[in-house]
Amino acid sequence: MSDTKKFLYVNRKAPYGTIYALESLEVVLIGAAFEQDVALAFLDDGVFQLTKGQDTAGIGVKNFSPTFRALGDYDVNKLYVERESLEERGLTEDDLQEIMYEDEDDDWAEKPSIRIVSRAEMAEIMAEQDVILSF
């Protein structure tokens, strides 16, 4: 398809409290069927979407945290996380869940989908996109 575009889904909100994170993920999953060049960005409170050990039983809301680990199966394997946003919230990469994908161009080697980038790098990534959806 000649009209493959670079899509970036920007996640700025915490996973619970509002519906933005869940409905963003729903777009990503549907969008995966369109064979575009897809990446996700996590910044501001959006970095909390990827923290590990989430348990939503107490708030009576479905825990969609495991869905992020399935993104590799949909060829969604670029998850950019902003370093400054982590640091500002007292988080490090170790607080994030492990999300892997199999690289078909490298004998299906398992590789991490999460890439920690600086705020300046995030700006460059955004500048390269054709379509940015902000949640």
């Binding site: 009209d3 575009k5 729903e26 777009v27 069927a33």
Partner: peptide, 20 residues
């Protein structure tokens, strides 16, 4: 209709502008 219409719009237009 479905979310596919959103993605399709992103593919077929020159600019996608989001108000939120």
């Amino acid at each position: 209709s479905g979310l596919g219409q959103l993605i399709e719009m992103g593919i077929q237009t020159d600019r996608l502008v989001m108000f939120g």
